[in-house]
């Protein structure tokens, strides 16, 4: 299964544990966890599989966070689909 970003929105990142995301397609503004926002930022025009995303994200995070982030990624992707920020392909 692949995931694709629905549109390119704007972020407000104040170095806190949450990030504001404005989705121009739905007009909705979301308060995302910093990790969820980071996941959204990994998407370009191309769709990604969960594995591709993990390969992209894990080298950039601290060693100790890897198991936790690996576990939470599928749930984060589902949530982002529910918010209509990502879609499944």
């Amino acid at each position: 299964m692949k995931w694709r970003k629905n549109s390119s929105g704007s972020f407000y990142d104040a170095n806190e544990s949450s990030v504001v995301y404005f989705d121009p397609r739905s007009g909705d503004t979301h308060l995302l966890s910093d990790f969820a926002a980071y996941v959204v930022q990994q998407f370009g025009e191309q769709p990604r599989t969960t594995e591709q995303l993990l390969n992209q994200i894990l080298p950039t995070v601290e060693q100790g966070d890897i198991p936790h982030l690996t576990d939470s990624l599928p749930g984060v992707l589902e949530d982002l689909v529910t918010l209509d920020i990502l879609k499944r392909e």
Partner: peptide, 11 residues
């Protein structure tokens, strides 16, 4: 209070 949460609440 956090800026991001203040953003959302004010919005």
């Amino acid at each position: 209070r956090r800026r991001t949460e203040s953003f959302i609440l004010a919005a």
